[in-house]
Design a protein around this nucleic acid. Structure first.
Length: 522
RNA sequence: CGGGGUGUAGCGCAGUUGGUUAGCGUACCUGCUUUGGGAGCAGGUGGUCGUCAGUUCGAGUCUGACCACCCCGACCA
């Protein structure tokens, strides 16, 4: 009896002892789970929590409009800086056109009006006055505009109205202009970064003498976006043509890059449009060619928006918070001191500042966080939450041994190395992390790309698994719309690189020459 | 724009059939002890209870309208 009780006690004790670390972790985990909703539990909530709690953005007093906070804006500034370099390298220059577009401009291009009419903000008056009863300010009815102004949802019309005056001969072409701007599309349902009433973007608007040159430009820019997504965002994408249903209002052809998010939904990450002569005709922009013949100018436009920040979050981040690609992270490395008293902190600070300046000389964005109102553990979690790629911790043990502890955000692994090798190691780690998260995203995309040949399989994948679905399509809008109606999946693009393959349409059974990319999309 | 839900301290929440001075956790401030994975104790600051109107001796609580946000649909990058 006694033995039995002892045995039981030992078992219980052993169990407790063996699992103590687990208990600790569980308690910690529960605390963190409260802080951030699990990705697997509720993906949409996880995303919202992340944006708010990582201090990227918040909702504002204006319905559907967000405040982009400094940490989120810093990511956008990095996106801008890299893209801008790429635009300049391909011969483009920046300019700025008005926020307001006369209403009449809009109606010049029929498809264009049709596409945007339902989501335009309109300015009707230009003055306010004190109300008669003195209770506030009202719109002055005497200050009605003769012609209402549309707040740009995109700038083709206002820009082509200017181009008419700039272009007379082939010698004035090409015009290769980009503008960084805000635009407004009055969306009913909004989500931070992914869909807001006002957003920031760049829009390129080019004018060319020949069709070939304009088509080439359209392709060139979708390739610039592809390179940017893959090299800087660590985001693998599929390039392709949009179908007639999905293309830009007013375009002959729209090319897009499509990325796959961790919940299996697709996100359009950048678009480039071949506009043909549509806008030139609408705004009467003609030029004299080499042979003295008059012709309409050929056009392209292309854009990439703050939505990319949403893509960045959804592609890489995890239950511990953001995971940012080093090339776009506002902060690439953080140094955290671990100290018991002021004297220790002094010594650690000396070393930390030396490391900081060494890292800065190597072009790394680094911060030394010596605040004493948070514990090291708190800082570890906090910087993990904010997605800082590399963390360096220096404590008393390191001072003794001339070492530092280096932790990487993507794998959450740690190593202790000599102080002398820190800078070299960090440089290498940043490259490794950039490569690793790209490879992870690429592998995820491959694992979640399906090639069904039966309609029941198609439906099953869309309904239960999500992901990219490469399937045969008969090329008709009717089929595309019916598939959308039944499954909510749309044709994201007709990939450039998928190659020809004989087959039968997944829905209608009619003959098809190639697979196209279906998915549910953001 | 249709359906559902929620608005109480910076954040997360409780507040009974209407009844004193509206509470808890967290964050913040002060002090002491701490600091190698979200520290502890003690004290303290902070609220026109989403807005407006109504019912009532009395409204966080009941009624109405409006506003905002979240989720699900239609629309879009």
């Amino acid at each position: 009896m006694t033995n039995h009780r002892n045995f039981k006690f030992q078992l219980v004790f052993f169990y407790f002892y063996a699992n103590f670390e687990n208990f600790k972790n569980q308690i910690l985990y529960q605390k963190m789970a409260k802080f951030l909703t699990d990705r697997e539990e509720n993906y949409a909530q996880w995303y919202n929590d992340l944006v708010i709690k990582a201090d990227l953005a918040e909702n504002s007093a204006v319905r559907g409009c967000m405040v982009i906070k400094p940490y989120g804006y810093a990511i956008w500034e990095n996106i801008q800086a890299e893209l801008d370099k790429m635009f300049k390298a391909t011969g483009h220059v920046n300019a700025y056109f008005p926020l307001f577009i006369p209403k009449s401009f809009f109606s010049r291009e029929a498809a264009h009006v049709e596409g945007f009419a339902k989501e335009c903000a309109v300015v009707t008056h230009y003055r306010l006055k004190n109300s008669e009863n003195g209770t506030g300010i009202v719109v002055d009815p005497d200050a009605k505009l003769d012609e209402e102004l549309i707040i740009r949802p995109t700038s083709e019309t206002i820009i082509w109205n200017s181009y008419r005056n700039w272009i007379q001969s082939y010698r004035d072409l090409p015009i290769l202009i980009n503008q960084w701007a805000n635009v407004v599309r009055w969306e009913m349902r909004t989500r931070l970064f992914l869909r807001t009433a006002e957003f920031l973007w760049q829009e390129g608007h080019t004018a060319h003498a020949t069709r070939e040159e304009a088509v080439e430009e359209t392709m060139k820019m979708i390739n610039v976006y592809t390179e940017f997504a893959e090299k800087y965002m660590a985001l693998p994408v599929i390039r392709g043509y949009k179908t007639d249903n999905e293309k830009f209002a007013g375009a002959i052809d729209t090319y897009s890059i499509e990325a796959l998010m961790q919940d299996g939904k697709a996100l359009q990450a950048g678009t480039s449009h071949f506009l043909g002569q549509n806008f030139a005709k609408a705004f009467d922009v003609q030029f004299t060619d080499r042979n003295g013949k008059l012709d309409y100018v050929w056009a392209t436009s292309w854009g990439l928006s703050t939505r990319m920040i949403g893509a960045l979050i959804m592609a890489h981040s995890d239950n511990k918070g953001l995971v940012l690609p080093p090339k776009l992270a506002p902060l690439q490395t953080v140094i955290i001191p671990i100290f018991k008293n002021a004297e220790q902190l002094g010594k650690i600070t000396e070393l930390a500042l030396r490391l900081k300046s060494e890292l800065e000389k190597a072009g790394i964005k680094v911060k030394y966080d010596d605040r004493d109102n948070n514990t090291p553990g708190w800082k570890f979690s906090n910087y993990e939450f904010k997605g800082v790629p590399v963390r360096i911790a220096i404590g008393p043990r390191d001072l003794e041994n001339s070492t530092a502890e280096i932790a990487r955000r993507d794998t959450l692994t740690k190593e202790t190395i000599s102080v002398a090798s820190v800078t070299g190691r960090v440089i290498k780690l940043l490259e490794e992390i950039q490569g690793n998260i790209y490879n992870k995203a690429l592998q995820f995309m491959k694992e979640n790309t399906y090639y069904p040949d039966k309609w029941s399989d198609f439906v099953d994948i869309i309904e239960n698994r999500g992901g990219f679905v490469m399937a045969h399509w008969d090329g008709t809008s009717e089929t595309e719309l019916k598939i959308k109606e039944e499954t909510k999946a749309t044709i994201r693009c007709i990939p450039f690189d998928s190659g020809e393959e004989e087959g039968k349409c997944i829905f209608s059974g009619k003959p098809s020459k190639r697979r196209v990319l279906f998915a549910r999309a953001y």
